[in-house]
């Protein structure tokens, strides 16, 4: 350091100092333009892809919809032999299992996020817990399904032994088993995004609350959570989107009832079915164009529900971060 600065002082510069402003070279300009074009292209391609998917599926679903006049949407019977393709039970099952999972996984996930973000634990344990939960996201869906069949269902059955009246209803694969496993599957999404929201609450707001004589929990309840609530809501909605589209584990656990016996039930102990499971179970064997059309309709409904939910969630998270811009100043 000192050597260079003294040499500068001793030998006056012979050439002109380097220009502060320099035109980009031809190759720099080319690469700039190339990469800008590439990112634009890719961004638009995703939009085109989604729109294209919606259009293609709609085209396939259209003949069935035209012939039946939309009967599928309010019929609860799916019976390929009688050309009855009602998907109302599946729509119901999709929403119900996802909401139940959200109730369980959302609560747990936000609680875990609070414990990770709010300095309750030594930093090593915190890091371990954080990585452990992120690892949950890497487990293949089919493993969750197996775990559900071999661990969750037997455990539920054992627990229900104490409630004989309930055990009579319990069929093993059911909305409850599916939702419990689904709750664990959405845990990483809820936890990671809620933690982001909690950690982006400026520390000086916490200090302000502590300085007024608030306890740790008063600070969390009255300052941190309200400030982070938009972000947490976004996290929950994105997790909802993930739960709606989950296929494999649900196909294994939800029971895939034929629904003639228990359509549209609130009872979580009964088997149910979901749109994604319907598609996974029936598509490979479907040959009758009417049935394929009905499956396409189910796919379209699922796609639209998840699209809307995800857009909504992303919008809320975007708004939450915009709100913080003002707070950080």
């Amino acid at each position: 350091m000192s050597e260079t600065s003294s040499s500068v002082v001793e030998s006056p510069p012979r050439e002109l100092p380097p220009m502060v402003y320099r035109e980009p070279t031809l190759s720099e300009r080319f690469f700039d333009r190339f990469f800008r074009g590439l990112t634009w292209g890719l961004a638009w391609m995703t939009v085109v892809l989604v729109v294209g998917m919606v259009v293609l599926i709609s085209v396939d679903a259209w003949p069935t919809l035209r012939d039946s006049g939309g009967r599928e949407f309010y019929s609860v019977v799916w019976d390929a032999n009688r050309n009855e393709f009602g998907i109302l039970t599946h729509i119901w099952g999709t929403l119900y299992s996802s909401l139940l999972a959200l109730l369980l996984g959302g609560t747990l996930g936000v609680a875990v996020a609070i414990f990770i973000a709010e300095d309750f634990l030594p930093s090593k344990i915190r890091l371990f817990l954080k990585n452990l939960i992120e690892l949950l996201a890497a487990i293949p869906s089919v493993i969750y399904g197996l775990w559900g069949i071999h661990v969750v269902i037997p455990a539920l059955r054992a627990g229900l032994h104490y409630f004989p009246s309930l055990l009579a209803d319990f069929s093993g694969p059911s909305m409850l088993s599916a939702s419990l496993v689904l709750a664990i599957m959405i845990l990483p999404t809820v936890t990671a995004l809620s933690r982001d929201a909690l950690e982006s609450v400026p520390p000086r707001l916490r200090e302000g609350a502590y300085g007024l004589g608030a306890t740790r929990w008063e600070t969390i309840r009255k300052i941190v959570l309200p400030t982070a609530c938009t972000g947490i809501l976004g996290a929950i909605i994105l997790a909802f989107g993930r739960a709606l589209g989950e296929t494999m584990a649900l196909a294994m656990l939800v029971g895939n009832s034929t629904a003639r016996d228990n359509p549209l039930s609130f009872n979580p102990l009964l088997p149910g079915q979901t749109l994604a499971a319907l598609l996974a179970n029936n598509f490979p064997e479907a040959s009758d164009p009417l049935q394929v059309g009905a499956l396409m309709m189910a796919a379209l409904v699922l796609l639209l529900i998840t699209l809307v939910v995800n857009l909504f969630g992303a919008l809320i998270i975007w708004r939450a971060s915009a709100q913080f811009q003002g707070l950080r100043s």
Binding site: G211, L212, G213, A214, E218, T227
Partner: peptide, 28 residues
């Protein structure tokens, strides 16, 4: 801290109304 209050270097109003900001400690 209830008896010895603190004001910080960066103004740090809470994300709530002016009234609720001042009422925060009182309610607490």
């Amino acid at each position: 801290r209830r008896h010895i209050g603190m004001v910080f270097q960066q103004p740090n109003p809470f994300a709530m109304s002016i009234f609720d900001n001042v009422a925060f400690g009182l309610r607490l």
